[in-house]
């Protein structure tokens, strides 16, 4: 691991100023991903600005009934927050489906958004990877890619974004709050992460020197039925093979508001706008749900070994929509919720 210097920032403006002094510097949050990548030689910052103790550790219910989540709020704390649990259960469920208890206790909201792909080629500096070293190629296309993207990938990159939390936030129409040398700005979460295109080295639209200071969740989904479900290789501590976040408002058997986002399928949380548009005003039936989700997933272009993700994502989404539309008919889940098996 390359040697580096370290300092701790005390307020967001100072943190941005500290980073601006050194182009090779990086912000350090919980460190659950950045420190791993530094050990692997994937990330080689010369200087770390520790932002984990910035006063951005609050979850506030805003005047209009939404949420303002500070960037340094730990994943565990956010999942347990009463306002999140009662008003936006999809977010709490997504957080609890991610990582392990130990990691969630350390990982921050901002860091969760900015975590890098777990593609094994990206993490191995002895192999080519366009995301890590642009222009070197993507061996995953011919190599090992069962866990990688089926939607929105490019010739250059087939990586997936690993976050569960971000998938729920995408479904909630959240905004990412940024502070940079030139001041603050707000980016919709669905525009924050990029598709790889010709520049897979860029995961997000964040500009050099910008700090994520928080996430704003509008009130529009507050209190609506919502849920997150994730499929994975083991019951805990595994990234999503596919996941789905759903918010659904049904009035008199007709779909009103609906938001659907997929995880594990693409380089970013995949907001299913085609499915949503297809569903609005339609009868809230399994048939229409399936029709809409299949319309969304028609864009999928699976690789040799990851075609299973398409029916898996479809089944997850159709099931969640069906359950949320008719809670009384919700199938009994015999899994023990304490085991995190959602």
């Amino acid at each position: 691991m390359k040697s580096f210097t370290y300092e701790r920032a005390t307020d967001p403006a100072q943190a941005v100023a500290l980073l601006a002094r050194d182009p090779a510097a990086r912000f350090l949050g919980g460190g659950t991903n950045l420190v791993d990548l530094m050990k692997l030689g994937v990330e080689t910052p010369g200087h770390l600005v520790d932002i984990a103790r910035l006063p951005l550790d609050r979850v506030e219910v805003t005047d209009d009934g939404g949420l303002l989540i500070g960037a340094t709020v730990r994943n565990s704390d956010l999942a347990a927050d009463p306002a999140v649990r009662t008003r936006f259960p999809v977010l709490s469920q997504a957080l609890l489906a991610g990582a392990s208890g130990q990691l969630r206790n350390t990982a921050t909201t901002g860091g969760n958004l900015l975590q890098r792909t777990r593609c094994t080629y990206f993490q191995d500096v002895t192999k080519a990877c366009n995301k890590r070293e642009p222009g070197t190629g993507c061996p995953a296309r011919e190599g090992v890619h069962r866990d990688l993207a089926v939607l929105g990938h490019s010739e250059a990159c087939v990586a997936t974004h690993p976050s569960d939390m971000a998938v729920a936030l995408a479904a909630l129409d959240a905004d990412v709050l940024l502070l940079g040398p030139d001041g603050g700005r707000t980016v919709p979460l669905t525009d924050f992460h990029r598709l790889p295109g010709d520049h897979p080295e860029k995961d997000t639209v964040i500009r050099p020197g910008e700090l994520v200071t928080g996430v704003r969740v509008p009130r529009t989904a507050a209190g609506l039925p919502s849920a997150y479900r994730k499929a994975r290789d083991r019951a805990s501590y595994a990234f999503a093979l596919a996941s789905a976040a759903v918010v659904l408002d049904v009035r008199d058997g007709v779909v009103g508001d609906v938001r659907l986002a997929f995880g594990g399928l693409a380089h970013k949380p995949w907001r299913a706008t085609t499915a949503e548009a297809t569903l609005r005003g339609e009868p809230a039936t399994p048939e229409s749900f399936r029709h809409a989700v299949e319309a969304e997933l028609a864009a999928a272009r699976p690789l040799r070994d990851n075609g299973f993700k398409v029916p898996m994502a479809r089944n997850l989404a159709v099931r969640l929509l069906t359950e949320l539309a008719d809670p009384a008919a919700t199938a009994t889940d015999h899994t023990d919720p304490r085991r995190g098996d959602r």
């Binding site: 392990s100 777990r118 094994t120 090992v144 083991r234 019951a235 805990s236 501590y237 023990d336 995190g340």
Partner: peptide
């Protein structure tokens, strides 16, 4: 081998053992 850490080489987690 593609999996060379315990995040990618999956052994049972506690939640798998009931």
């Amino acid at each position: 081998f593609a999996e060379r850490d315990l995040a990618s080489y999956h052994v049972p987690a506690h939640a798998d053992v009931r």
